[in-house]
């Protein structure tokens, strides 16, 4: 847990985190499940409600802060990581969460996302990825599969999608994970690990939009298909999956990447490997087709957070303070070639 954030002895419950606002997502939206999971998990942190802030951008997911009985800001499209950076850096006593979507974080706000991750700002970034623009009624997004037919692409989209985890890893993220809206237990376990991480934690949450992109993640949700396609990453455990755990993720000699094969010697998962190439290779196992999709914590390494480094500079400089602020200001104004008229 981040040491600058206070802990309360008061036991809070999920109910304490529900605001008085009416939740206005479409019935059946995956966002409900995520909201419930977050509200249910928050008491575990032991952080006083008033020290928690949710900052969001624009899009369906970005309504999230209104429903949390914490401090919150529903800002503008794509800019939540930038706003949250200013808040987090200037207030190390706050637990700052960013809620964003695939359009918000990866399209209009792409620059802020990568720079927040590069700096390792102490933010917990939850990206609700539904692979579609929902609030604007169904245009393709930067995570939509190539050839996606939508209102704005009747002949199919012509641009290749981002792999959000590969992007985050390329941006030097220190914590990268993926989870699914419908798997509450897994979702909460990933959030727990993210909250414990010092620095930026990037969590991609596969979220179903039942209106404009229903069933996008069905392959890894449906009980009849998921065992053969979903790879659960567990720290220190061999990476195997399948109904009989018959598939392994292996690292063939002479290859840059990882491979899925039947049988063979499975790699043992270690998210703390310093070389990001490992987590990157894991992130490349899945494409748009979700054929073999790992979930869990891909990468979890330590690097000083931006907040910590900036705070240290401030603390060191303030230790040089020599007088009241007014006296120091007088000193500063006079610190030049001055002359006196009598």
């Amino acid at each position: 847990m981040v040491s600058t954030i206070p802990i309360t002895p008061v036991k809070l419950t999920a109910k304490d985190f529900k605001s008085d606002q009416e939740v206005r997502w479409c019935p059946g939206c995956g966002d409900y499940a995520i909201l419930a999971a977050v509200q249910g998990f928050m008491p575990e942190l032991g952080i006083p409600r008033e020290n928690i802030v949710f900052v969001s951008g624009i899009g369906c997911s970005s309504r999230f802060p209104y429903y949390m009985n914490t401090y919150g800001m529903h800002s503008i499209h794509g800019r939540a990581p930038a706003i949250a950076t200013g808040l987090s850096v200037s207030r190390p006593d706050l637990s700052v969460w960013v809620v964003t979507g695939d359009g918000d974080a990866l399209s209009i706000g792409g620059n802020h996302l990568i720079h927040a991750l590069r700096r390792n700002v102490n933010l917990k970034i939850l990206l609700f990825n539904n692979r579609i623009y929902g609030l604007t009624k169904g245009q393709y997004s930067p995570t939509s599969e190539l050839g996606k037919i939508t209102k704005s692409t009747p002949a199919g989209s012509a641009d290749s999608p981002f792999n959000p985890l590969s992007l985050a890893l390329g941006a030097e993220a220190t914590f990268v994970a993926r989870t699914i809206d419908s798997d509450r237990k897994h979702l909460q376990s990933v959030l727990r690990a993210a909250a414990e991480h010092e620095g930026s934690a990037f969590v991609e949450i596969y979220q179903n939009c039942n209106i404009f992109n229903d069933g996008a993640f069905e392959l890894i949700k449906d009980s009849t298909t998921r065992e053969d396609h979903l790879i659960r990453l567990e720290q220190g455990q061999p990476i195997t999956f399948g109904a009989q755990q018959q598939f392994s993720v292996t690292h063939p000699a002479g290859s840059f990447g990882l491979k899925v094969q039947e049988g063979g010697e499975a790699l043992v998962h270690d998210a703390t490997v310093d070389d990001p190439a490992y987590a990157f290779a894991l992130s490349r196992l899945s494409g748009s087709d979700l054929g073999t999709t790992p979930i869990g914590v891909f990468r979890n390494v330590q690097r000083p957070s931006y907040d910590e480094l900036i705070t240290k500079q401030l603390v060191d400089a303030k230790a040089q303070a020599d007088g009241t602020p007014e006296q120091m200001l007088d000193g500063l104004l006079n610190k030049a070639d001055t002359w006196t008229i009598l």
Partner: peptide
């Protein structure tokens, strides 16, 4: 954006 965030704080 960062300045607005800081003001909020």
């Amino acid at each position: 954006g960062a300045a607005v965030g800081a003001s909020y704080g």
